[in-house]
């Protein structure tokens, strides 16, 4: 199997084909808004755009974003070769018009037309232990603590893609691609609690206040309706990574911890009651989903990290099994 070909196809699908859960959420939103409103007009255009991009294999948003590959590989994998394949695939996808020339040399201000540079695209590798038994292993960064055998159901993985498939995939490789646009990335933020100006203390009520405040501040920036990926705890750097990884979760799932699932539901409902609406022009559809994970923290720190994603939640995954067969994961 040629990894460059495979990853170029992953980019084509990610950039042009919105996942079914996101498309369904947009379609439901059209029905919720009043038919003659600006909100309904905008949402109908988003649905039409989604179908058109898929049919033409063209980018569904012109900001094809930061490309982040999340890899899960067995021990002994040549990750340098996979990273090189990702770079080759990005250059090819850019040449094909699937990606915008979207990379600027920060010092010279010149465009890096291939979109390939040091650390660009981003690759995160995690090694999966080859545990042949029937349990699911969920990567640490997916928002769930690592599971030990016999642990209770709180550790049930939150997304199918990172579960062991029935045939097992201990020797297989799984990769997810997230394309996140600059407008939405500019709106990601981090709070350090307590925050007196928000009246936010070190508890879930404080987290709720941060999240609603973040949604209010985002209006007019990242294209609403959006998705919040949230990490409570961790240090600053890990908080942003964990928050971003929550954006790989299906819009239809819920956090395995009941208190976080309840907070996800509540913030979604309250944010949509703010009246901000699609593109900040008013309406009842401001968020499509809220995805929260919790991590341990230092006694001195309590970070709430928010990764904001616009309506164009471009995420796709694939798994190559040990026999070389390829499975698309959404």
């Amino acid at each position: 199997m040629d990894w460059t070909d495979t990853l170029a196809e992953l980019i084509r699908r990610t950039t042009s084909d919105l996942p079914a859960d996101a498309e369904a959420a947009l379609c439901r939103a059209v029905d919720v808004e009043s038919p003659d409103s600006q909100a309904a007009l905008i949402l109908r255009a988003l649905v039409e755009n989604t179908a058109l991009a898929r049919q033409q294999s063209t980018p569904l948003c012109q900001d094809t974003g930061t490309l982040t590959f999340f890899w899960e590989v067995p021990p002994g994998t040549d990750t340098a070769a996979l990273e090189q394949a990702a770079r080759n695939a990005v250059a090819r996808a850019t040449h094909n018009g699937w990606l915008r020339r979207n990379t600027i040399d920060t010092l010279t201000g010149r465009s890096v037309d291939s979109n390939v540079a040091e650390g660009c695209p981003v690759c995160h590798f995690e090694q999966r232990a080859a545990d042949g038994e029937g349990s699911c292993k969920t990567p640490r960064s997916m928002g769930v603590p690592p599971m030990k055998h016999g642990q209770d159901a709180r550790a049930t993985p939150v997304r199918k893609g990172f579960c062991k498939s029935p045939e097992g995939h201990a020797a297989g490789i799984e990769v997810w691609l997230l394309q996140k646009g600059g407008g939405s990335e500019n709106m990601s933020r981090q709070f350090s609690l307590p925050d007196e100006t928000l009246g936010a203390g070190r508890d879930l009520e404080g987290v709720r206040r941060c999240l609603l405040h973040a949604v209010w501040q985002t209006q007019g920036f990242g294209c609403a309706p959006g998705v919040l990926g949230v990490c409570i705890g961790a240090d600053r750097a890990e908080g942003f990574l964990v928050a971003k990884r929550q954006l790989l979760r299906s819009l239809d799932d819920a956090a395995p911890e009941p208190e976080l699932a309840a907070l996800e539901r509540r913030v979604l409902e309250e944010a949509n009651a703010l009246g901000i609406g699609p593109m900040g022009m008013g309406g009842t559809t401001t968020l499509l989903g809220v995805k929260i994970a919790a991590r341990t923290r230092l006694p001195a720190s309590y970070f709430v990290t928010v990764a904001y994603l616009c309506w164009a939640c471009r995420r796709r995954g694939l798994r190559v099994s040990s026999d070389g067969s390829l499975h698309w994961l959404n």
């Binding site: 042009s16 905008i42 255009a45 988003l46 039409e48 755009n49 058109l52 991009a53 033409q56 063209t58 980018p59 569904l60 948003c61 012109q62 900001d63 646009g181 407008g183 294209c223 593109m279 022009m281 616009c310 309506w311 164009a312």
Partner: peptide
């Protein structure tokens, strides 16, 4: 004027 953010395929048309 507010164009539809992210509707890049539609606008390209």
């Amino acid at each position: 004027l507010q164009a539809v953010g992210g509707a890049a395929a539609l606008i390209a048309q």
